[in-house]
Amino acid sequence: MPTPILEIRNLQVTFNTPVGPLVAVRGVDIDVHAGEMLAVVGESGSGKSVSFLAAMGLLPRSATVTGSALLDGQQLVGMTPKQMRSVRGRLMSMIFQDPLSALNPVHRVGAQITEMLRAHTKMSERAANARAVELLEIVGIPQPGDRAMQYPHEFSGGMRQRVVIAMAIANSPKVLIADEPTTALDVTVQAQILEVIQRVQVQFGTAVVLITHDLGVVARVCERVNVMYAGCFVERGNVHGIFEQPTHPYTRGLLASLPQTGVGRLVPIAGFPPNMLRPPSGCAFRARCDHAVEACGSAIPPLVPVGESESACIRASELMGRK
């Protein structure tokens, strides 16, 4: 396997809150390869966004980040703010969930894109304007020249998200982190946005990390999937493998709660995610797991190969045979 473009090792994120330290990410490893589309799946609060915000250096001051995140060989954790700034928006950029609040309401759309361009290149204002219009065209905005002069409130939700994508890919980053890019959009628009993301992935050779809780989205566009629960990865592997034969009880629960044609009922996962102010010992899912045994509480189970995937369930191979 080639060296990954983004290599995260043992990343930990702790928030200093008034009620005590809150461990949001508890030592995750992840490899993102050049040009691939990778999914990170989990419920809200599982730490999936926080992990990548940490890599981007975008967490508030109350967060402590440890571990390692190598982007194209550069260590991101512990970078000075100045070094970090030269990485952000140039090598790695981000698309956010809500395109309405992600765009500054008082600046023209074109200006918000040229700002990105001119932050990292010595482009003239003229050239940057022209490039911004080109980018708007690439993401499929009709009449990009006129639209560049408009304000975000004059765009529909889907169009706004296209603008955000145009901004994010302005400097052809190596890695694009898409943080729930379709969650705030209408279902009909979701597919279009995913298509735009796929297109820029191919056209720019950008690796895309798709953070989502929507397994339907994952099945449609991704090759590899990482499932996160309570700040740890519980399962990862090929999309088809995991969909056909999930190895971790949590993944199985997620899949069972997904609406499918022909299946009678949705089965929700019982209980609630653990309180991360007092994280449980051992496997974090064990309180909600039907298959939990005493041994589950002894240590956080590492990811081990099971079949075609990797699973963090100590009973994974044993449970594989059963339904």
Binding site: M56, L58, M84, R85, S86, V87, R88, G89, R90, S93, M94, F96, D98, S101, A102, L103, N104, P105, E115, M116, A119, H120, V164, M167
Partner: peptide, 10 residues
């Protein structure tokens, strides 16, 4: 959020 977007531009 747009402040975070701005920051994400580097």
């Amino acid at each position: 959020e747009y402040m975070r977007t701005a920051r994400s531009k580097g």
